[in-house]
Design a binder for these strands. Structure first.
Lengths: 436, 436
DNA sequence: ATGTTGGCTAGAAGCCGACAA
DNA sequence: TTGTCGGCTTCTAGCCAACAT
């Protein structure tokens, strides 16, 4: 089956996915968020998960898994990139394992060597039948083979391969008054084959062997939410949860698709990243932070914001979840489009982050966690995390089922020294400061 | 959202769906088959449901529902027709209700008035860029407005609307030597827009107001199994079952999509049709039957076959299911493609069918059905249905988890008079002969 | 530096009857 | 009756530099 074929070129896939997308490596531990997965379904179907769902007692808001397998794909029709991940729920991760991972693969799959590439948002002229493609000057110099400028006009044939390993041929010529780089013959076939429109992005890059690759990224508006015609959105939402719950209950693997262009956020997060953010970073309302976001032209920019609230996104279905548990405001008034809720691991606190030593961290699973006694300044988990959430309905403005919590942070609840004890229904983590 | 818009013209939808497709009417009772629904998912994803599934005790092999809502749709890209049905599980259907339905809507939605239409399988010439569309003579006479043959050449403009209510304009001309009807200008735009290929079918019809409609039906081969890129096939299979099970457990509605061109068989069957086939028709191995199937050219033909076995398609996951419980052989040797398993309600026994009076039929739901005593020649349900199945592993050739049962039928098990008692885990039906 | 436009041209799209099955 | 083909015409796709931003 053609549509099932894997994408071979990881670098090209990542370029098409966008600058902020990271992938965990096979064998590493990750936190899987059913909420985030549901959000991807919601974004793809343009339907909210508004029905009443069965409860899955075995499915925590974050399911710790080992990444059993990951393959990269691209839609045969649209070239939309997606990753298939097979996750193996794990019942316990030892401290040593976690530390090993921390050293090995903090941020997941990455291409270390800086890629030689350029991307361009297509203009009306680029996509019209009237002409070819205008190559930005620097882009041509950087990624295309140099032209023989002694010829009149200088021209060559360009061969590039897409995610499906299909070859595309273009005539690259330097002409016009003033002179410019153009792709002529072959370009319009590419445009019509990929059904590109003005506003979409095309992307060329050169791999280690000097071979040219090209990919596309469709403008957001084109996400017309294919009404699946196979499964109702309700069934999809249930399927996502039930599959994960069944895997968790039977300790078996399950498979998900991560669609970076469609999904509002990543929902499979390296465990070390998750733990660092949740257990080793101090967060409070009013704290300022910065966060990288993708810009219109496919680069990244840091935006500054302030934490305005901490609480569950969905206190009914997903209590004590860290998924988008922060409510934020953005400094710039042009921030209308930006997320009003983010997760801890997405942000970078501007006040110097509080890091504690890993040496005594524990991570273990238990149905009824028993908190160790005699650790000095401890605080029951209910006091640390649950109590503010339980009261949220008293304070909240009711929006999104949460609240703005003013002047409240973990220290204000009595956590005087730098110790945090967090607890979930099935996963307990203790972090003790050693030399602070 | 464009893609969500309903199809307005039921008749056109039915024509595109094919001659054998029937739809239940709103308010009527139906039997929903999770197995059949899974088969549609399997056909669409080209994946078998090979994983281990959670068990859903609340979900019987056939879930009796009331059709709460049905809307017709067509894929915005491919024009593939599908129906969205919302089903309300019901706990009991009274005898009177069932009889009312039997009178009202035995066969579901149908267009009573014979439709004026024609369909044609496109030839290479029809789809090439070289020319237009050759209209079969009779077709032109039947559905297109008459030409003014005094003009030279006789020609007119044809306007037809598709399932999305989009208008298509064609030039209809009568020319050539010998004379023939052709569609010229406008035809190639239609072909390329719908991405029609030789072998696909185009279909014209005239509605009550004389307006022209047109639809398409793609050749089977074109089902290239879009790899969903959103949900893993495992999640889809689970989602289908979990959604139905949840609805059954909470007595709430659930929504499914029925895709007549992709699905091997209908899996939402009018209850009266189901009951008639299951409870009021006598079936035995060796019995000969006929069954209507769609032919290459979109008409129907009756094929003759013989029942070669009776037993569960999937004795492990779906014991005591009537879904494709008949194993059959076909008379014609060209039957390589035809189904080797069919359901009771799909066939028409050639020996005079055995019909009993409805007057004393009961249909009620109970978790632990207790069989009434003292009804004369009764037989426990285990003896009637389960015992042959339990022994199937001893007899079977192992294929498809069932067996060929030779010289075995219900009468052979001791059911001498015309009485049948069938029982499932949650639905019991008694049929007593009154005056036979 | 590069997006858009008018002019020009080559080649495909598309109309026709001839011919054949 | 209707599928395919060669001949011919029409029109669009597509190359070019001019011009504008």
């Amino acid at each position: 089956m053609e549509g099932d074929k894997k994408v071979q070129n990881t670098t090209l896939w990542l370029e098409c996915a966008g600058p902020l997308v990271t992938l965990p490596v096979v064998g590493s531990y990750v936190a899987y968020f059913p909420q985030g997965h549901s959000e991807q379904v919601a974004a793809s179907t343009q339907k909210e998960a508004d029905m009443q769902f069965p409860s899955y007692p075995n499915l925590p808001p974050q399911l710790i898994c080992q990444l059993y397998n990951i393959t990269l794909h691209a839609d045969q029709e649209t070239d939309e990139v997606y990753a298939q991940m097979t996750l193996q729920p794990v019942t316990g991760v030892s401290c040593q394992q976690e530390k090993d991972q921390s050293l090995m693969s903090n941020l997941g799959i990455q291409t270390k060597e800086p890629t030689i590439s350029f991307s361009k948002i297509l203009t009306a002229s680029d996509t019209s039948t009237h002409g070819g493609f205008s190559i930005p000057r620097r882009a041509a110099d950087k990624v295309f083979p140099p032209l023989d400028y002694t010829k009149q006009p200088p021209a060559q044939e360009i061969v590039a391969r897409d995610l499906h390993n299909n070859e595309w041929h273009f005539r690259h010529i330097f002409r016009g008054q003033p002179r410019r780089h153009l792709l002529t013959t072959g370009w319009s076939i590419f445009v019509s084959s990929k059904r590109l429109q003005a506003g979409d992005t095309v992307l060329f890059m050169r791999d280690q062997n000097g071979h040219l690759l090209l990919g596309i990224r469709c403008a957001k508006r084109q996400q017309t939410a294919i009404p699946s015609s196979l499964l109702s959105s309700d069934s999809m939402f249930i399927g996502v949860l039930a599959a994960a719950a069944h895997a968790a209950a039977t300790n078996s693997r399950f498979t998900i698709f991560y669609n970076p262009r469609a999904s509002p956020s990543e929902f499979v997060i390296p465990l070390v990243k998750y733990n660092k953010a949740v257990f080793h970073t101090q967060i409070s309302v009013g704290m300022r932070f910065r966060m990288e976001l993708e810009t219109e032209d496919s680069s990244t920019r840091r935006y500054i914001g302030t934490i305005t609230g901490i609480g569950d996104l969905d206190p009914i279905r997903w209590p004590n979840s860290y998924w988008r548990s922060l409510k934020v405001g953005w400094d710039e008034s042009t921030a209308g489009q930006r997320q009003r809720r983010v997760s801890l691991w997405e942000i970078e606190p501007l006040s110097s982050p509080f890091i504690v030593c890993h040496s005594s961290s524990l991570l273990l699973r238990s149905k009824r966690p028993r908190l160790p006694q005699g650790l000095g300044q401890t605080l029951s988990s209910e006091e640390v995390l649950e109590s503010p959430m339980k009261q949220s309905s008293l304070w909240g403005r009711g929006e999104e089922g949460t609240t703005d919590i003013q002047n409240l942070n973990l220290q204000g609840l009595g956590l005087e020294r730098s110790m945090q004890i967090h607890q979930r229904s099935d996963l307990m983590a203790l972090t003790l400061p050693s030399d602070y």
